[in-house]
Amino acid sequence: MINLTINGLKTSVEDGSTVLEAAQFLGFPIPTLCHMEGLEPYGACRLCLVEIGKAPNTKLVSSCTYPAQEGLVVRTASSRVLKARKMVIELLLASCPQSKVIQDIASAHAVNQQRFKQEHEDCILCGLCVRMCKEQMMAGAIGFRGRGENRSLGTPFDVKSEECRFCGGCMYVCPACQLRCTFNEPEKAICGGCQNLSPPCVEEEKFDDMMCYMAPCVACEIDKA
């Protein structure tokens, strides 16, 4: 067990826990975006910033990737943390204001405007879909390409990946698109129930419900009939 202090409260957590897990265990709210249980911590969104160490040598770290250490002093809501967190929210709003997830986080933290050049990206590079595809769906069909400002997300060579089996997991976790697949009627904005009449899961390997987010899916309906 590791003993640490969070917001003045002493607590002990199991070896290998992160600061985020310890804080959540005590009930301190820390906003997260790129964090999801069951997926490897990634530390991309920087929303879960906390302040560690004793004054004047404190520093900001992302709590989702920072392992709990013996004797660590953590503050989750100091003025420095709140200021930095507000900045992160503003930056997220600047890049992807149409995301419901980001809007919710902003309103929960009373951020009503942002001071940067407004853009409308359709991806914030949080890496949730990449980890979902690789770690939970065992596919590894999508990933990051390029570098710096040209970094993008997609399949190798922008062609349909052979590993992809249309499980829909990437769309399910995406905070930026938040739209379920509408097949060929995007204006309806509701799930089209996978109108592809021959999804690969019918023809080749069978995956159980746990490995598919495409419900309702025509393939399953055919199978049941």
């Binding site: 690789k134 596919a139 590894g140 069909a141 999508i142 990933g143 990051f144 390409r145 390029g146 570098r147 399949t155 190798p156 060579f157 990946s161 590993e163």
Partner: peptide
């Protein structure tokens, strides 16, 4: 080439997207 990367992925047992990510980084 696309083909060469595919073979590397197959032979090393990594996913193509990992190798593609390195190759165009």
């Amino acid at each position: 080439s696309e083909k060469a990367l595919g073979i590397v992925a197959q032979e090393t047992g990594r996913s193509l997207v990992d190798i593609y990510g390195v190759a165009n980084f």
